[in-house]
Protein backbone atom coordinates (compact mmCIF):
# COMPACT_ATOMS: atom_id res chain seq x y z
CA UNK A 1 0.00 0.00 0.00
CA UNK A 2 1.06 3.48 -0.81
CA UNK A 3 1.56 5.71 2.21
CA UNK A 4 2.19 9.10 0.64
CA UNK A 5 -0.54 11.72 0.29
CA UNK A 6 -4.03 10.42 -0.51
CA UNK A 7 -4.46 13.05 -3.20
CA UNK A 8 -1.99 14.94 -5.34
CA UNK A 9 -3.03 17.47 -7.95
CA UNK A 10 -0.29 18.91 -10.13
CA UNK A 11 -0.73 21.84 -12.51
CA UNK A 12 -4.33 20.91 -13.26
CA UNK A 13 -5.81 22.74 -16.22
CA UNK A 14 -9.44 22.37 -17.28
CA UNK A 15 -10.68 23.72 -20.57
CA UNK A 16 -14.20 24.17 -21.83
CA UNK A 17 -14.35 24.43 -25.61
CA UNK A 18 -17.23 26.67 -26.66
CA UNK A 19 -18.38 27.70 -30.09
CA UNK A 20 -16.27 30.85 -30.18
CA UNK A 21 -13.20 29.98 -28.14
CA UNK A 22 -11.81 27.61 -25.56
CA UNK A 23 -12.29 28.82 -22.01
CA UNK A 24 -9.67 27.99 -19.42
CA UNK A 25 -11.82 27.40 -16.35
CA UNK A 26 -9.12 25.98 -14.08
CA UNK A 27 -5.45 26.76 -14.54
CA UNK A 28 -2.28 25.61 -12.84
CA UNK A 29 -3.97 24.25 -9.74
CA UNK A 30 -1.69 22.17 -7.52
CA UNK A 31 -2.19 20.83 -4.04
CA UNK A 32 -1.73 17.76 -1.90
CA UNK A 33 -3.91 16.19 0.71
CA UNK A 34 -2.53 14.03 3.51
CA UNK A 35 -4.42 10.98 4.74
CA UNK A 36 -7.32 11.98 6.97
CA UNK A 37 -6.79 15.67 6.25
CA UNK A 38 -9.63 18.11 5.56
CA UNK A 39 -8.92 20.71 2.89
CA UNK A 40 -11.40 23.56 2.62
CA UNK A 41 -11.87 25.16 -0.79
CA UNK A 42 -13.44 28.61 -0.92
CA UNK A 43 -13.98 31.20 -3.60
CA UNK A 44 -16.68 33.13 -5.36
CA UNK A 45 -19.21 31.48 -7.61
CA UNK A 46 -17.54 30.43 -10.85
CA UNK A 47 -14.04 30.22 -9.35
CA UNK A 48 -13.67 26.62 -10.57
CA UNK A 49 -14.19 24.78 -7.28
CA UNK A 50 -16.75 22.28 -8.59
CA UNK A 51 -14.84 21.67 -11.81
CA UNK A 52 -11.70 20.85 -9.81
CA UNK A 53 -13.66 18.44 -7.62
CA UNK A 54 -15.32 16.80 -10.62
CA UNK A 55 -11.98 16.41 -12.40
CA UNK A 56 -10.51 14.60 -9.38
CA UNK A 57 -13.14 11.87 -9.45
CA UNK A 58 -13.32 11.78 -13.24
CA UNK A 59 -16.82 13.19 -13.56
CA UNK A 60 -16.21 16.35 -15.56
CA UNK A 61 -19.22 17.04 -17.72
CA UNK A 62 -18.43 17.29 -21.42
CA UNK A 63 -17.40 19.50 -23.13
CA UNK A 64 -15.22 20.29 -20.10
CA UNK A 65 -11.96 18.33 -20.16
CA UNK A 66 -8.66 18.00 -18.39
CA UNK A 67 -6.24 19.78 -20.71
CA UNK A 68 -3.13 19.51 -18.61
CA UNK A 69 -1.63 18.44 -15.33
CA UNK A 70 -1.76 15.22 -13.40
CA UNK A 71 -3.82 13.76 -10.55
CA UNK A 72 -2.91 10.89 -8.23
CA UNK A 73 -5.34 9.27 -5.82
CA UNK A 74 -3.74 6.99 -3.25
CA UNK A 75 -0.57 6.96 -5.34
CA UNK A 76 -2.40 5.94 -8.53
CA UNK A 77 -2.40 8.23 -11.52
CA UNK A 78 -6.08 8.79 -12.36
CA UNK A 79 -6.37 11.72 -14.76
CA UNK A 80 -5.69 9.47 -17.76
CA UNK A 81 -7.79 6.46 -16.70
CA UNK A 82 -10.62 5.16 -18.85
CA UNK A 83 -14.15 5.44 -17.47
CA UNK A 84 -14.15 1.71 -16.75
CA UNK A 85 -10.93 1.90 -14.76
CA UNK A 86 -11.98 5.08 -13.01
CA UNK A 87 -15.18 3.37 -11.94
CA UNK A 88 -13.15 1.03 -9.75
CA UNK A 89 -11.62 4.01 -7.97
CA UNK A 90 -14.92 5.83 -7.51
CA UNK A 91 -16.89 4.83 -4.46
CA UNK A 92 -14.18 2.50 -3.22
CA UNK A 93 -11.18 4.81 -2.88
CA UNK A 94 -12.68 8.21 -3.61
CA UNK A 95 -16.32 9.19 -3.17
CA UNK A 96 -18.30 12.36 -3.67
CA UNK A 97 -21.17 14.21 -2.06
CA UNK A 98 -23.02 16.82 -4.04
CA UNK A 99 -24.91 19.93 -3.17
CA UNK A 100 -28.52 18.94 -3.46
CA UNK A 101 -29.68 15.91 -1.46
CA UNK A 102 -33.16 16.28 -2.92
CA UNK A 103 -31.90 15.26 -6.35
CA UNK A 104 -28.91 13.06 -5.48
CA UNK A 105 -31.02 10.00 -4.80
CA UNK A 106 -32.95 8.07 -7.43
CA UNK A 107 -36.64 8.64 -6.58
CA UNK A 108 -37.73 5.22 -7.83
CA UNK A 109 -35.60 3.05 -5.53
CA UNK A 110 -35.76 2.66 -1.78
CA UNK A 111 -32.91 3.96 0.30
CA UNK A 112 -32.10 0.37 1.22
CA UNK A 113 -31.93 -0.73 -2.42
CA UNK A 114 -29.53 2.09 -3.23
CA UNK A 115 -27.33 1.31 -0.21
CA UNK A 116 -27.29 -2.42 -0.86
CA UNK A 117 -26.40 -2.07 -4.54
CA UNK A 118 -23.53 0.29 -3.67
CA UNK A 119 -22.22 -2.00 -0.96
CA UNK A 120 -22.43 -5.05 -3.19
CA UNK A 121 -20.72 -3.25 -6.05
CA UNK A 122 -17.63 -2.76 -3.92
CA UNK A 123 -17.64 -5.41 -1.22
CA UNK A 124 -18.01 -9.13 -1.64
CA UNK A 125 -21.15 -9.52 0.44
CA UNK A 126 -24.38 -11.47 0.27
CA UNK A 127 -27.65 -9.54 0.07
CA UNK A 128 -28.31 -10.16 3.76
CA UNK A 129 -24.84 -9.05 4.82
CA UNK A 130 -25.12 -5.93 2.68
CA UNK A 131 -28.49 -5.15 4.22
CA UNK A 132 -27.02 -5.48 7.70
CA UNK A 133 -24.22 -3.12 6.72
CA UNK A 134 -26.75 -0.68 5.23
CA UNK A 135 -28.62 -0.71 8.53
CA UNK A 136 -25.53 0.02 10.57
CA UNK A 137 -24.54 2.80 8.15
CA UNK A 138 -27.94 4.45 8.51
CA UNK A 139 -27.64 4.22 12.27
CA UNK A 140 -24.13 5.64 12.07
CA UNK A 141 -25.26 8.72 10.14
CA UNK A 142 -27.90 9.32 12.78
CA UNK A 143 -31.11 8.24 11.11
CA UNK A 144 -33.65 7.21 13.74
CA UNK A 145 -35.48 3.88 13.34
CA UNK A 146 -33.23 2.67 10.51
CA UNK A 147 -35.05 -0.67 10.17
CA UNK A 148 -38.18 1.12 8.98
CA UNK A 149 -36.33 3.82 7.07
CA UNK A 150 -34.40 1.29 5.01
CA UNK A 151 -37.47 0.32 3.00
CA UNK A 152 -38.68 3.85 2.42
CA UNK A 153 -38.25 5.96 -0.71
CA UNK A 154 -36.22 9.18 -0.83
CA UNK A 155 -39.33 11.36 -0.99
CA UNK A 156 -40.27 10.15 2.46
CA UNK A 157 -37.14 11.79 3.94
CA UNK A 158 -36.55 15.45 4.81
CA UNK A 159 -33.66 17.32 3.19
CA UNK A 160 -31.34 16.89 6.16
CA UNK A 161 -32.18 13.19 6.46
CA UNK A 162 -31.55 12.72 2.77
CA UNK A 163 -28.13 14.29 3.02
CA UNK A 164 -27.41 11.84 5.84
CA UNK A 165 -28.41 9.03 3.49
CA UNK A 166 -26.14 10.51 0.82
CA UNK A 167 -23.27 10.53 3.31
CA UNK A 168 -24.02 6.91 4.21
CA UNK A 169 -23.95 6.06 0.50
CA UNK A 170 -20.62 7.80 0.04
CA UNK A 171 -19.18 5.86 2.99
CA UNK A 172 -20.46 2.43 1.89
CA UNK A 173 -17.04 1.08 0.93
CA UNK A 174 -14.99 3.15 3.38
CA UNK A 175 -13.29 5.37 0.80
CA UNK A 176 -10.10 7.16 1.78
CA UNK A 177 -11.11 10.42 0.14
CA UNK A 178 -14.38 12.29 -0.19
CA UNK A 179 -15.04 15.29 -2.37
CA UNK A 180 -17.86 17.18 -0.69
CA UNK A 181 -19.10 19.94 -3.00
CA UNK A 182 -21.14 22.38 -0.93
CA UNK A 183 -22.80 19.54 0.98
CA UNK A 184 -24.99 21.85 3.05
CA UNK A 185 -25.76 24.78 0.75
CA UNK A 186 -29.18 23.43 -0.18
CA UNK A 187 -30.16 22.70 3.42
CA UNK A 188 -31.92 24.64 6.13
CA UNK A 189 -29.51 26.82 8.09
CA UNK A 190 -30.44 25.04 11.32
CA UNK A 191 -29.48 21.67 9.83
CA UNK A 192 -26.27 22.75 8.10
CA UNK A 193 -24.21 22.69 11.30
CA UNK A 194 -25.47 19.18 12.17
CA UNK A 195 -24.51 17.79 8.79
CA UNK A 196 -21.07 19.38 8.85
CA UNK A 197 -20.50 18.06 12.37
CA UNK A 198 -21.59 14.59 11.22
CA UNK A 199 -19.31 14.67 8.20
CA UNK A 200 -16.41 15.85 10.33
CA UNK A 201 -16.96 13.17 12.97
CA UNK A 202 -17.38 10.30 10.50
CA UNK A 203 -14.39 11.22 8.40
CA UNK A 204 -12.31 11.58 11.53
CA UNK A 205 -13.41 8.15 12.78
CA UNK A 206 -12.84 6.46 9.43
CA UNK A 207 -9.65 8.37 8.68
CA UNK A 208 -11.20 9.72 5.48
CA UNK A 209 -9.62 12.76 3.87
CA UNK A 210 -12.06 15.41 2.65
CA UNK A 211 -12.00 18.14 0.05
CA UNK A 212 -14.73 20.39 1.40
CA UNK A 213 -16.00 22.99 -1.05
CA UNK A 214 -18.06 25.69 0.59
CA UNK A 215 -18.87 29.38 0.60
CA UNK A 216 -18.92 29.42 4.36
CA UNK A 217 -15.62 30.57 5.90
CA UNK A 218 -17.07 29.81 9.33
CA UNK A 219 -17.44 26.14 8.37
CA UNK A 220 -13.90 26.08 7.01
CA UNK A 221 -12.47 27.65 10.15
CA UNK A 222 -14.15 25.02 12.28
CA UNK A 223 -13.68 21.96 10.12
CA UNK A 224 -10.69 22.21 7.80
CA UNK A 225 -7.01 21.70 8.50
CA UNK A 226 -5.91 23.76 5.52
CA UNK A 227 -7.76 26.01 3.13
CA UNK A 228 -7.35 26.84 -0.55
CA UNK A 229 -8.74 30.13 -1.81
CA UNK A 230 -9.63 30.04 -5.49
CA UNK A 231 -10.09 32.96 -7.86
CA UNK A 232 -10.80 32.72 -11.62
CA UNK A 233 -9.73 29.09 -11.77
CA UNK A 234 -6.45 29.56 -9.88
CA UNK A 235 -5.37 29.10 -6.31
CA UNK A 236 -4.76 32.55 -4.86
CA UNK A 237 -3.68 31.33 -1.47
CA UNK A 238 -3.31 28.00 0.29
CA UNK A 239 -2.26 27.44 3.86
CA UNK A 240 -3.17 26.20 7.34
CA UNK A 241 -6.61 27.45 8.32
CA UNK A 242 -5.51 29.32 11.41
CA UNK A 243 -2.86 31.25 9.49
CA UNK A 244 -5.03 32.06 6.51
CA UNK A 245 -7.87 33.25 8.72
CA UNK A 246 -5.73 35.22 11.13
CA UNK A 247 -3.09 36.54 8.77
CA UNK A 248 -4.24 36.28 5.13
CA UNK A 249 -1.42 37.01 2.69
CA UNK A 250 -3.41 37.62 -0.47
CA UNK A 251 -5.41 40.85 -0.66
CA UNK A 252 -8.36 38.82 -2.01
CA UNK A 253 -8.30 36.51 1.02
CA UNK A 254 -7.99 39.53 3.27
CA UNK A 255 -11.10 40.95 1.64
CA UNK A 256 -12.94 37.66 2.09
CA UNK A 257 -12.02 37.49 5.77
CA UNK A 258 -12.98 41.10 6.40
CA UNK A 259 -16.41 40.39 4.97
CA UNK A 260 -17.15 37.78 7.65
CA UNK A 261 -18.40 39.04 11.02
CA UNK A 262 -16.35 37.68 13.90
CA UNK A 263 -18.32 36.14 16.73
CA UNK A 264 -19.63 38.75 19.15
CA UNK A 265 -18.58 41.56 16.87
CA UNK A 266 -21.06 44.22 15.86
CA UNK A 267 -20.36 46.33 12.82
CA UNK A 268 -22.74 48.61 11.00
CA UNK A 269 -21.58 47.44 7.63
CA UNK A 270 -19.53 44.46 6.60
CA UNK A 271 -16.56 45.10 4.39
CA UNK A 272 -17.14 44.17 0.76
CA UNK A 273 -14.68 43.72 -2.06
CA UNK A 274 -15.59 46.14 -4.83
CA UNK A 275 -16.81 44.72 -8.11
CA UNK A 276 -17.17 41.06 -8.91
CA UNK A 277 -15.02 38.25 -10.22
CA UNK A 278 -14.48 38.61 -13.99
CA UNK A 279 -16.07 36.10 -16.34
CA UNK A 280 -13.84 33.50 -17.94
CA UNK A 281 -14.15 35.32 -21.24
CA UNK A 282 -12.46 38.50 -20.01
CA UNK A 283 -9.90 37.70 -17.40
CA UNK A 284 -7.62 40.74 -17.23
CA UNK A 285 -3.99 40.64 -18.12
CA UNK A 286 -1.53 40.22 -15.26
CA UNK A 287 -3.01 39.27 -11.90
CA UNK A 288 -6.67 38.38 -12.43
CA UNK A 289 -7.54 40.19 -9.18
CA UNK A 290 -5.76 43.45 -10.09
CA UNK A 291 -8.83 45.57 -11.03
CA UNK A 292 -10.36 44.96 -7.59
CA UNK A 293 -7.19 44.91 -5.54
CA UNK A 294 -6.66 47.68 -2.97
CA UNK A 295 -2.88 47.06 -3.01
CA UNK A 296 -2.44 46.95 -6.77
CA UNK A 297 0.75 48.27 -8.38
CA UNK A 298 2.23 48.37 -11.86
CA UNK A 299 3.59 44.87 -12.15
CA UNK A 300 0.19 43.37 -11.19
CA UNK A 301 -1.31 44.78 -14.38
CA UNK A 302 1.42 43.39 -16.61
CA UNK A 303 2.48 39.99 -15.33
CA UNK A 304 0.66 37.13 -13.80
CA UNK A 305 2.00 36.53 -10.27
CA UNK A 306 3.91 33.34 -9.62
CA UNK A 307 3.07 31.21 -6.64
CA UNK A 308 5.41 31.81 -3.73
CA UNK A 309 5.88 29.31 -0.94
CA UNK A 310 6.18 30.98 2.43
CA UNK A 311 6.82 27.77 4.39
CA UNK A 312 3.76 25.60 3.84
CA UNK A 313 1.69 28.68 3.03
CA UNK A 314 1.46 29.48 -0.68
CA UNK A 315 0.29 32.70 -2.19
CA UNK A 316 0.11 34.02 -5.74
CA UNK A 317 0.67 37.75 -5.31
CA UNK A 318 3.43 40.13 -6.38
CA UNK A 319 3.44 41.74 -2.94
CA UNK A 320 5.18 38.63 -1.68
CA UNK A 321 6.99 37.93 -4.89
CA UNK A 322 8.75 41.28 -4.50
CA UNK A 323 9.94 40.41 -1.00
CA UNK A 324 11.38 37.13 -2.14
CA UNK A 325 13.17 38.61 -5.11
Amino acid sequence: MHDGPILQVENLRIEIPTRHRTLVAVDDVSFELARGEVLGVVGESGAGKSLTGAAIIGLLRPPGRIAGGRIWIDGKRVDNLSQAEMRKVRGRIAGAIFQDPMTSLNPLFTVGQQLVETIRTHLDMSRAEARARALSLLAEVGIPAPEQRLDQYPHQFSGGMRQRVVIALALCANPKLIIADEPTTALDVSIQAQIIALLKRLCHEHGTAVVLVTHDMGVIAETADRVAVMYTGRIAELGPVAEVVRAPRHPYTAGLMASIPAIGETRDRLYQIDGSMPRLTNIPQGCPFNPRCPAVFDRCRRERPETVDLGGHRVACWKHGEQEA
Binding site: I57, L59, Q83, A84, R87, K88, V89, R90, G91, R92, G95, A96, F98, D100, T103, S104, L105, N106, P107, F109, E117, T118, T121, H122, V166, L169, A170, C172, A173
Partner: peptide, 21 residues
Amino acid sequence: TDYIRFAQARGLTSRAIYFRH
Protein backbone atom coordinates in the same frame (compact mmCIF):
# COMPACT_ATOMS: atom_id res chain seq x y z
CA THR B 1 -29.46 14.37 -13.64
CA ASP B 2 -27.84 14.59 -10.24
CA TYR B 3 -28.88 11.11 -9.21
CA ILE B 4 -27.13 9.55 -12.18
CA ARG B 5 -24.05 11.60 -11.43
CA PHE B 6 -24.19 10.50 -7.82
CA ALA B 7 -24.68 6.90 -8.94
CA GLN B 8 -21.49 7.28 -10.98
CA ALA B 9 -19.72 8.82 -8.00
CA ARG B 10 -20.74 5.76 -5.98
CA GLY B 11 -18.88 3.64 -8.50
CA LEU B 12 -21.87 1.67 -9.83
CA THR B 13 -21.30 -0.20 -13.08
CA SER B 14 -22.50 1.34 -16.33
CA ARG B 15 -24.96 -1.51 -16.60
CA ALA B 16 -26.55 -0.69 -13.24
CA ILE B 17 -26.56 3.02 -14.05
CA TYR B 18 -28.15 2.76 -17.48
CA PHE B 19 -30.35 -0.31 -17.22
CA ARG B 20 -31.43 0.01 -13.60
CA HIS B 21 -31.39 3.65 -12.66
